[in-house]
Each structure stands twice: as C-alpha cells, then as structure tokens.
Design a protein around this nucleic acid. Structure first.
Lengths: 316, 316
DNA sequence: GAGCTTCATAGCATGACGCTATATTACGGC
DNA sequence: GCCGTAATATAGCGTCATGCTATGAAGCTC
C-alpha cells in the first residue's frame, strides 16, 4: 500500500512543530485541513499516529518514525523546488556551447569564465566545430548554442543568428615585427614572410586565401598550420611569420601576448561573430542568461575596439 | 512554489524506465494518467522536462535532475510503507513493559529474550513497579502493558487483565538444604531458619507474612531483604535461609540455580500472574504479538509445572 | 511512406483537499 | 471538581487532480 508523501510531510510538520495547529500554520494550511489529512492517513494505515486523548497532539512511536521519513521527503521536495527556481533564473543547469576554435579560444572562453564566476552552478560543456557540425549539433540537441562567424545569408531557415561582433580579419604579426615599423605597407613588403595557417578545412583558412588574394598575393608560403590559437600565438610571437586572425581575437590577445595588427586593408567576408541557435526551441534559462551576458560583453568589447581603432588610425 | 512529490516520483519512474509507457506500467497506472501528470508538472514549473519531439521520451537536464530527487522521495516513501507493514505485523516498534520485579526477572525476562530473537526490530523498554505504579503508567501512556500477579477482584474497571500463570507461592531453599531431606515438615522444623524477604513494600513481602502466619509462624527473623531476584538467589544458594517465591520462578530458576521448593502447603492469595492493560486502548501490534507470545509460553510452562508437581507429589 | 510504437487529448466519474463555521474534548487554574 | 481557554474534530460545500477508456497525433523503423 502506497502512502501519500504529502501526508507524511504534514505529519512531519506537526511533529516538528509540536502540535497540529502549529503544524498547519507552518504549512500555510487551515487546521481542519491538516486534521483531516491526518485522519485519512491514520485510516489508511489502520494504526494510530498520535497518542489518543492528548491535547497538544503527541505522536506514537510509529507516528514519530513516519514523521522522520516525512521530513526526509520534505527536504527532497524542497530541494527540487529550489533547483527549479535556480534553473529558472539561469543559475543552475548544464549548458553545451559549440563554436569555431579560434573565436572560442580567443574571445568566448574568457567571457565564459567571467560568466561562470557569477553563475557557479552552471556546468558548461564546450566543444569545437565548424558550421556543418555545429548545425547538426544544434538540430540533434547535442548543443544548446553555437558561436561562430557567419554571413547573414548563410543562416539556415530553421536556425536563428544573433550577431555579437564584427568579424573582420586582420593580418597579424608579433609586436616589434619589422613590418610594424613600415609605413604604407604594400604587397612587396609582405611577400618575403612566411604564413601561419589555421586548419585547411576551417573558414579562417579560406579567409586567409581570400585576404591574400585581395591584396594580390595569390601564392603564399605556409610554415605552420593546424594549430589552435595557443599554438598560433606561440609561433607568431616566436617568429616573423604572419597570419590572418579576427581583429577581436588580436585585440583581446594583446592584453597578454605581444601581437600587432598590420594597418593593411584586406578583403573579408561580410561575416559577423554571433550566436546560432534553433529558432523554435525554448532554451534553458541558463543558456538565455549566457547569450544575454555574451551580448553585453561583446557590445563593450566592440566599443573598445572601435575606440582603439580610431586612435590607431589617427596615429597611423 | 511547492512541487507535487507524486509528480516527481512519476518523473523518476519514467526516466528510470526509459519511457512514459514503461514508466506508467511500472507505476501501475494508465499511460494517459502519467502523461497528464507530467504535463501538469511541466506547466507548473514552466520549463520543459523532456526533450521536445523525441519519441522514446528523453528528459532534459532539469528533468533528469528532478528525477533524481523524485527517486529519493520514492525511496523514502517506500521505506515508510515498509515500516508500516512491519509495524502492523508486530515486527517493529517500541514496546514498554512494566512488571513486578520478581516475576519480570524470574519468568518474563527469558520469554522476552526469546520473543526478541524472533522480532529483532522490536525495541523493548522494561521497567519495574507494583500495582499502583503500573496502573499509573498504563493510564498515562508510559506503559503499553504491565505484568504482575493480581487477584481477579483487584482489577480496576478501566483495565483488563489476562491471566498467564497461577501465582501460588512456595517456601524455597537451596538444593541440599537440611529441610529437603526432612519428611513431614512442620513449623518446628522451619523455625530455626532465617528468612530472606523481598522489599517491604512489595506484595510478595505481604505474601511471606501471610504464608508464615498460615503455618503458625507469626514472628520470623529476616536476615536479608530488599534485593532483586538475582540477589535473593545468591543468598539463598549460599546459606540455609528460606524465602517465599512464586512457584513458577522457582521452577524456572532451577534450570540454572540449585533451588528447591519445600513440600509444605502454605496459604496464598488467589492471585494469578497476568498481563494488565488499558481495556479500550488499541494496542500496537508488537504489543499484541508479545502478549500472544507470552500467553503461549506460559501455557507451556504451566503444563510443565503441573506435570512436574504430579511427579513430585507421587514421589514425595 | 506504411505500419508500428509512443505519446497526447477528450470526456467523464470519483475522491482528495481547500476553506469557513461549529461542535467536541483536553488542559490548567482556582 | 468546575470553568474558561485552547486544541482538535466534524460538517458542508466548491474546486481541482486523478483514475479510467477511447481516440487522435506524431516519431521511429524498415
């Protein structure tokens, strides 16, 4: 025979409060209501839960034992309510973010760190991938959101894209690179240097091709490729090699790594770094929290980058 | 906002069974019923518990977390049902038995030991007292049952008395006592010996007085008094002192302690050892179990005593 | 895409639970 | 031992959750 958990919780309240009336009050119910609940419970188990003829109602041995279990149930139930509440506020839950490697490493990861310091109970599973993989992940539920640079026209109809940052690329080299002291850089100045390339299947690699083609350099020498941002940064700072990176990545990397963006205009796809998600699916609150947070952070970052570029332009 | 524990348990069942239909089956409910319960729960918390558009229903992160809590609730609830069941069968609970010291020590304790070996989860609180105390204990709920020798006419109207054993007393001495070799014992034979007396306020003390008076010995010498059965037994076996004890106590003591009952008829109150309890109060099942058990044990004991006395009589 | 499985919805009956008002019963003080 | 007070139980009524069967809708599998 199954007992009603609610009844056990009520019993626990009565025993803990030392009386039916107080118990009812603690539960926010009327006294007759809990009285009847206890009568029902007693009738079902067929045994007395309270000593008969005692006015501040006192539990029997069985009543006390059941009250302990009721208390356990109450705690679990309360924990459930709390979990829902925290989940609703985006303070709890698991969150699966996928994104293109360079952006994730160079821009998003530090923001996620900041986010997590505020939302300690949100567990974040980060993964890497390009458009196709990320789309698949979003559709099959393996990802909550994807973060990647995308052309507005590229967005599939069942997905929704929220831009975060402009996605313009720049030619990057180490600080103190000979080219940083060169005024009016041309193709001729660049030609001698070797290139660091991202993985061949990455959009960034195609960006690199396109950028170099746009400045007339069809054919280029690659002496390092395939690494993640950390490797690219290391090779970049340890050599005179050049590469193409999103400006935002360079901008943020400069806080800790001596990099420079060359003031050479290159063609770049009209892409924007942004958040891609399934449009009709209701996102977990933690995800909404994160997207809101990233949006705000990126707006600040964009403002700082714009400000910085104005100064650079004025100086340059 | 409070969640329905029942809903959480249902959720747990669904998640554990890997589907709504299986969950419903495991719970012994119809599929539509649990479906609606989950719809209600989802509506209340305002967040999805299951991945949308998945046919073997799969929980979301939140759903899975709540299911874990539901499982905890389920375990506690099941434990409660089990407790009730065992309690109802008299296999669990606490049981407070009070009784007159000599009987409790000499007869009841060993039976209780036997009872407890069969009902391991029954906790027994034993206490000692005479009629007045025991009555009070029964009435104020401090005792479940009392075990004592009582005259049928002495039973108060609100209490109920179930006889267990005849309460006749005998004069007792150590085995090998000079009197045991004496035929046709008279007052003169007994006169020289000192007496061991129970506590002065005990009915047994009055029995002793009465018994001795009935054989003409108004005035007797007490050289030990106030001890419990264990002490009385020790003094008895270590000296030639005499005492008056219920025959049942002597009978059972003989299994381990060398005592003899003198074949001297003495007057004794028409009392019977029995169980006293409040007549209108429903007793915990464990108590009923114990009383039934004691009844059976005492019947067997009575039969053995009767048998033994026939033999003794034939021999004597 | 056919067929099967799985889940959701509809409709109805029953029972539990909420409340207020009121009766009953134990406790404490004199 | 009685009385006032406090604590609990009962009565009566409306609402909502839950049980069921029958049936519709949507995924999954091959």
């Amino acid at each position: 025979m199954k007992l009603d958990s609610e009844h056990l919780e009520i019993l626990a309240a009565i025993v803990e409060q030392g009386g039916l009336t107080e118990g009812a009050e603690a539960l926010g119910k009327s006294q007759p209501s809990v009285s009847r609940s206890m009568a029902l419970l007693e009738a079902r188990i067929g045994l007395p839960l309270f000593e008969p003829g005692r006015r501040p109602l006192r539990p029997t041995e069985l009543g006390a034992s059941l009250a302990r279990l009721g208390s356990r149930i109450h705690r679990a139930n309360k924990e459930a309510s709390l979990l829902v509440q925290r989940y609703r506020q985006g303070l709890a839950g698991r969150l699966r973010v996928g994104g293109s490697p360079i952006f994730m490493d160079g821009v998003v990861a530090s923001m996620i760190a900041e986010f997590q310091s505020r939302h300690a109970d949100v567990q974040i599973d980060q993964s890497y991938g390009y458009l196709n993989q990320l789309e698949a992940g979003l559709r099959n539920g393996g990802l909550d959101v994807a973060i990647l640079p995308l052309h507005p026209g590229q967005v599939p109809p069942d997905l929704e894209f929220t831009p975060l940052l402009s996605g313009n690329n720049v030619i990057t080299c180490r600080a103190g690179h000979p080219l940083t002291r060169t005024r009016g850089i041309t193709l001729n100045h660049i030609a001698p240097y070797a290139w660091i390339a991202p993985p061949i299947d990455s959009p960034l690699y195609r960006d690199l091709q396109r950028a170099l083609k746009s400045i007339g350099q069809e054919d280029f020498r690659v002496n390092f490729s395939g690494g993640t941002l950390a490797s690219i940064q290391s090779v970049l700072t340890g050599s005179d090699a050049l590469t193409v990176l999103p400006y935002s990545v360079v901008f943020l990397s400069r806080r800790t790594i001596p990099l420079e963006a060359l003031p050479l205009k290159i063609d770049h796809a009209e892409r924007q770094l942004g958040i891609l998600r399934v449009s009709d699916r209701q996102l977990p609150p933690a995800v909404r929290q994160l997207t809101t947070f990233l949006l705000a952070e990126c707006q600040r970052l964009q403002a700082r980058m714009d400000h910085d570029q104005q100064i650079t332009r004025r100086r340059g």
